[in-house]
């Protein structure tokens, strides 16, 4: 008995077996349906984007952890957080993005998205979106070249949202919304970022996250609903000038953003009230950009803007105390 060394520390002595790693890997698994769909649609042109982005992002994660003097480098580098960022970034890129762009994306995500702020947990902006917007502004041509799905000759075309912005409402009036929701290729229409094509696949992954208790349904529901209501009102007021709200739901990055990026723990508010305001803001900004802005799509910008407001939202939304 005397030989035993007993540890004296504070309670509790039981812990739930869910650590950061488990959460990150669950998110990766939840992204699998959308990833597989991307691979099915774009084959090698998606595979290279995904592999290069994963590889470079993970590499830069290790490098920057090293530079910052992290003592637990293996443990920290492989907690899965860099892979989540990388996969989200990859799914937000057009098919056939060149390897060097994937590398720059990984670099920006890890350096300006994450490590300049002190690493995981301290970054105010979603690192994948920081990188995506950086690439969008730096390489607008590549970032706006969309492959028409399942076409071996690699014909490009505008996305439905892009088409509406440039050609007007009549260009998209006859699109089969159900096909868009499932993510089936539509003749002469560019798909968009490789991971955002199938709302169905994203929804499947999102439901897994909800079922496993990783995210609460609040943010995706409020975000999507806000876009639906906002664009719905405009459609109701003037159906000749504005698209059907369902069209807004099944196109662009709304689902991917709502389920996987507006729910990023680190860059969104802590309280339920805060999350509600965050999602509402995302929905309003997305709708404003889509309806009145010069960009066809506003999901990335709206989430980044709301990321910036998160500390303020946290400051002004208090939890409701029991008995208080």
């Amino acid at each position: 008995m005397a030989e035993n060394k007993f540890i004296v520390r504070a309670a509790p002595f039981l812990k739930q077996r869910e650590d950061v790693k488990t959460i990150m890997w669950t998110v990766l698994i939840a992204l699998l349906p959308a990833t597989l769909w991307a691979l099915y649609l774009y084959r090698f042109r998606a595979l290279s984007v995904i592999l290069f982005t994963l590889l470079f992002t993970q590499l830069f994660e290790i490098i920057f952890l090293r530079i910052r003097g992290n003592k637990n480098i293996i443990e920290s580098a492989f907690d899965g957080s860099a892979l989540v960022t990388a996969l989200l970034l990859a799914l937000n890129l057009p098919s056939g993005s060149p390897w060097w762009m994937c590398a720059i994306g990984g670099f920006v995500a890890m350096l300006f998205g994450k490590h300049v702020y002190g690493g995981l947990g301290n970054n105010p902006f979603n690192p994948a979106l920081v990188a995506r917007v950086f690439l969008l502004l730096s390489f607008p041509t590549i970032m706006n070249t969309w492959t028409v799905g399942l076409n071996p000759d690699i014909i490009t075309g505008a996305t439905p949202l892009g088409l509406m912005k440039t050609e007007g409402l009549q260009a998209i009036q006859n699109l089969d919304l159900w096909r868009l929701f499932i993510g089936l290729p539509v003749e002469s229409i560019g798909g968009g970022s490789i991971g955002e094509i199938s709302e169905l696949a994203i929804l499947a992954g999102g439901l897994l996250l909800i079922a496993r208790g990783i995210i609460k349904p609040l943010i995706p529901i409020i975000y999507i609903l806000t876009v639906f209501i906002f664009t719905g009102i405009m459609y109701f007021v003037n159906p000749a000038a504005y698209a059907n709200p369902i069209f807004h739901m099944v196109t662009g990055g709304l689902f991917l953003g709502a389920f996987f990026m507006a729910t990023d723990f680190v860059t969104t508010p802590l309280t339920m009230k805060g999350k509600f305001i965050f999602a509402l803001g995302c929905g309003i900004i997305t709708s404003l950009i889509r309806l009145f802005g010069s960009y066809p799509e506003g999901v990335s910008f709206s989430i980044l803007i709301m990321n910036a407001l998160t500390p303020t939202i946290d400051k002004f939304t208090k939890t409701k105390k029991f008995g208080g």
Binding site: V20, N72, L270, T319
Partner: peptide, 23 residues
């Protein structure tokens, strides 16, 4: 088990389980 502490990832689970509604 003893486990290594890492940075808060703001998952807000602690807010959800607190029976007093604290942060």
């Amino acid at each position: 088990e003893e486990s290594e502490e890492s940075a808060c990832i703001r998952c807000s689970k602690c807010l959800l389980v607190c029976p007093m509604g604290l942060n």
